[in-house]
Computed example of a mutant assay.
Amino acid sequence: MTAYYPPIAYIVPEAENGWLLKTILAKRMHVSRKLQSKLKLTEEGITLNGRRVYISVHVQAGDVVEIRMEKETSDDILPQPIPFDILYEDEHILIVNKEAGMIVHPTHGHYTGTLANGVVDYWLQKGEAYRFRAVHRLDQETTGVLAIAKNPYVHQHISEQMIDNLVDKKYLALVHGTPDPRQGEVDGPIDRDPEEPHRRIVTPDGYPSLTRYKVLESWTKGSLVELKLETGRTHQIRVHMTSIGCPLIGDKFYRHAIYDRQGEHGEPGSSFADPEPHSYPTEPVSEIMELDNFISRQALHAFELSFEHPVTHEQMTFRAPLPEDMARLRQRLEA
């Protein structure tokens, strides 16, 4: 007998009396064509008042439409007892606070030790069967809130909210200097660096990219900045903040251009055209290096994530506190 996840139900209101079932599925329950095709092939995938029907039938007010997805497992991910911080969990989603240095999903050369390995083991120990589906990405060294869907419907629903810009993702960063103005936006197209394809740069021929920022606190050598992504390009915050002369403290990849200007080439320098000279911090390069060496990663934290729950339709907001290494760096800047 096929094992299913709990059904997701929709009660047809009076205003939708006589609609086609396929219209209810697409317009009201937001089931993608791909998922509809899969559900139609399972015995209890799509039911109307408890009976399996064709999606070409007409519904009546008060009818109960239900979809059921078959249980899945991540057989390609090795379960490992890796601890991780859970912020929220229900039968549809898992929200975690990712730590620094943890890769989200196994990749070539990193088949174990990832968040996915730990989550799959956690579900296995609870006797639950889910396929690991991270809804969005965080860089290996970026900490903070990460959403994981427990079924394809939830993954699709939140992904569509992201495409429609209905998901709020806010970050905290500790940067060199202070952005001018203290609140604004960086509207700079991003694409691969033709000389170093694994890097991204701001270039007129790039993909539209927009980051909004607000300085929360500022000190002599740096600032605490809140950032909101309006687009989701790879390394977007790191690239945009470097492009305005305020790179993230500790970032060994998108370093401050002052390293190149001072002849410091221990790590790759910035590939951007120099911003206006006044946007650079006035400290000697040694002081910038001291701050960069104070933390072992880029000082970036995904502190808040908001979206509509795909099943309950409740607007939900999840927050993760500032991690210890960034808190120490903040104290260092204050001192």
Score class of each variant (00 low, 15 high):
104 V>I: 04
150 K>R: 08
196 E>I: 15
117 N>M: 07
107 T>V: 09
217 E>N: 03
69 M>T: 06
39 L>T: 00
276 E>A: 14
296 S>A: 13
16 E>V: 08
59 V>E: 02
299 A>E: 00
165 N>M: 06
255 R>V: 01
312 T>V: 07
75 D>V: 12
82 I>G: 02
88 Y>Q: 05
290 E>I: 02
202 V>A: 03
224 L>N: 13
5 Y>E: 04
236 Q>G: 08
207 Y>W: 08
297 R>N: 05
37 S>C: 02
97 N>P: 14
95 I>C: 11
190 I>N: 08
13 P>N: 04
48 L>I: 05
46 I>L: 08
223 S>F: 10
241 M>W: 10
324 E>Y: 14
181 P>M: 00
334 E>G: 14
71 K>R: 15
269 G>F: 13
210 L>D: 02
13 P>R: 12
201 I>T: 09
143 T>A: 01
322 L>E: 08
199 R>A: 01
227 L>Q: 10
108 H>E: 01
145 V>C: 05
41 L>D: 03
165 N>L: 06
295 I>D: 03
235 H>K: 11
140 Q>L: 06
165 N>A: 09
267 E>N: 10
15 A>D: 11
245 G>K: 14
198 H>T: 07
87 L>I: 00
276 E>K: 15
277 P>T: 03
244 I>E: 05
175 V>I: 04
282 T>M: 03
152 P>F: 02
110 H>T: 01
333 L>R: 14
122 Y>L: 02
314 E>D: 07
276 E>L: 15
240 H>R: 06
47 T>F: 05
331 Q>N: 04
23 T>H: 15
202 V>R: 07
138 L>R: 10
181 P>H: 00
145 V>K: 06
146 L>K: 11
280 Y>E: 02
206 G>D: 02
84 F>Q: 06
145 V>W: 02
19 W>D: 00
318 F>T: 00
146 L>M: 06
17 N>A: 11
30 H>P: 04
119 V>I: 07
25 L>F: 12
116 A>P: 12
197 P>F: 00
196 E>A: 13
94 L>D: 07
102 M>D: 04
331 Q>V: 02
142 T>Q: 08
